[in-house]
Design a protein around this nucleic acid. Structure first.
Length: 465
RNA sequence: UCCCUAGUAGCUCAGUUGGUUAGAGCAUCUGACUGUUAAUCAGAGGGUCGUAGGUUCAAGUCCUACCUGGGGAGCCA
């Protein structure tokens, strides 16, 4: 008999499955026992919904049934029948049960009751078996898939940028060192410094903090590309929004100006939300009911509201005239703080906001300079609850201006000579942005802590699993 | 890294101005129950109160340090 997934059974027209025999396999969520009969709630990960298995005590050995506890893995053969109870349309009457793996009840940490997210983080090896994390990781899969689908359908190429790099060109943050040198016996130069010419690559290397610069090389040949890969930051950040290892999506498009870039970002976000609402509604609904009662409303609102677009300069004026008691003072030239961004998005506009044209001093060297010589063609997309979810810009495509910005920012030429050469040979206007995958997961799941939207979070002092 | 806050049973928590033998719900185990769905009902077991010092006749409770979790900030995605 061929095994069938619970999702397939539950989504089928009951008339087409009732009366048929099936084999299902999964993990026991609960077993409720009466005198003559037991009910098993079985989940196989294919859906948040459980299949109710009905067990007639006459058919099975009592000691065998005692081993079927919460968490155990079983396979069940039996007949699908219409359920007399209203909670589920169908149920499976078992004829044969195979016990694959026991889960001793006095040791298995997951109970029928709800657990705190903090406790579940401590058992990250088991938490995917809960309703909450099952839902989150299914959504995570669908989100990743929809990102690839969006770009693929638009003719973008998935461009693989390197994980191991030589330097922190972007100044994005502290980097994780990569080396094969013997840390207990480091080769030294005559000046007493570590001799990296002895290292695997013959140079000092680290894990990437961004694939953007390499992504631009792809865009200036293939037209439109995107990257989607792991990114590493060794910052000692202990917040609900930072991970040391996270996934980032970075599209990069030739012949796109800053307006095209904004249009793409907005279309992208709306596409992903729509895809999830159409493909993971049950999981989103569960999270909405359990954790964030406004989640579905918020997602639908973002879906049919045009994003507000305004310049940094206009935003500063709004903040100055807001009469809000901000902790950090407002003046032209400051980098906006969380409290400022939150005011604009959640209080003033009440919808996603795209801020543009920031002072060049607070943005990266590769962003295209405006004619005023003071601001750059940068754009940040801010959303409710999460804050900055996308950062992007039109890139500086003028060789001389880029060289000047590189020198002003003291970026070592040995690290970016190849990047600069693209402005010497067939330079073209181009733009791109970066989206933090887990930040977006926070937004679409309503979760409050980034450690709860990735299977195995890496944060300072935390790498148990 | 800074500020705030918490750490008591497997989990979630209560524990008064310091004062006998530290409690509850859930979970677990035993039993009951003709279809349950966070099943229900009855009973039982389970704790050197985060760690190390200190104050005191007496510390779960007060003080100090450290560890760990959570929230906020900075940095950012």
């Amino acid at each position: 008999m061929q095994r069938i997934k619970i999702k397939e059974l539950l989504k089928a027209d009951p008339n087409n499955v009732i009366g048929n025999d099936y084999l299902v396999k999964g993990w026991v969520r609960t077993r409720r026992e009466s005198k003559n009969i037991s009910f098993i709630a079985l989940n196989d990960g294919s859906t948040i919904n459980h299949l109710q298995i009905v067990v007639d005590h006459d058919k099975f050995n009592e000691d065998f049934l005692k081993k079927i506890t919460t968490g155990s893995a079983i396979g069940v053969k039996g007949q699908i029948v219409a359920s007399p109870a209203p909670k589920q349309p169908i149920e499976l009457h078992s004829n044969e049960i195979e016990l694959y793996g026991e889960a001793p009840a006095d040791e298995y940490p997951l109970q029928k009751k709800g657990h705190s997210l903090e406790f579940l983080r401590e058992i990250a090896h088991l938490r995917p078996r809960t309703n909450t994390f099952g839902a989150i990781f299914r959504i995570r899969h669908h989100l990743a898939y929809s990102i690839h689908k969006f770009f693929n359908d638009k003719g973008f190429y998935y461009f693989h940028t390197p994980i191991i790099t030589t330097s922190d060109c972007e100044g994005a943050g502290e980097m994780f060192r990569v080396t094969t040198l013997d840390l207990y016996n480091l080769p030294l130069t005559d000046h007493g410094k570590i001799d990296f010419s002895e290292d695997f690559f013959g140079k000092e290397t680290a894990l990437t903090v961004s694939g953007q610069l390499e992504g631009e090389l792809g865009a200036l040949a293939l037209g439109e590309i995107y990257t989607f890969g792991p990114t590493f930051r060794a910052e000692n950040s202990n917040t609900t929004r930072h991970l040391a290892e996270f996934w980032m999506i970075e599209p990069e498009m030739a012949f796109y100006d800053i307006i095209d870039n904004m249009n793409l970002a907005e279309e992208f976000i709306k596409y992903l939300i729509k895809y999830l609402l159409e493909n993971c509604y049950e999981d989103l609904e569960f999270l909405n009911n359990m954790y964030d009662k406004e989640l579905l409303d918020r997602l639908n609102h973002v879906l049919d509201t045009p994003f507000e677009r305004l310049t940094y300069t206009d935003a500063i004026e709004i903040l100055k005239n807001s009469n809000q008691n901000f902790e950090f003072p407002i003046y032209w030239g400051v980098d906006l703080q969380s409290e400022h961004e939150r005011y604009l998005v959640e209080k003033y506009f009440k919808k996603p906001v795209i801020l543009t044209d920031y002072p060049k001093e607070i943005k990266a060297f590769y962003m295209k300079l405006n004619d005023d010589d003071k601001t750059v063609k940068a754009m940040d997309v801010l959303v409710p609850r999460v804050g900055e979810i996308i950062g992007g810009s039109q890139r500086e495509d003028n060789y001389d201006k880029l060289l000047k910005r590189i020198q002003e920012n003291h970026v070592p030429m040995k690290d970016v000579w190849w990047y600069l050469e693209t402005r010497k040979f067939g330079s073209a206007p181009h733009s791109g942005f970066g989206l933090g995958f887990e930040r977006f997961m926070l937004f679409v799941t309503g979760m409050g802590n980034i450690r709860d939207v990735i299977p195995f979070p890496r944060t300072p002092k935390n790498i148990e699993f």
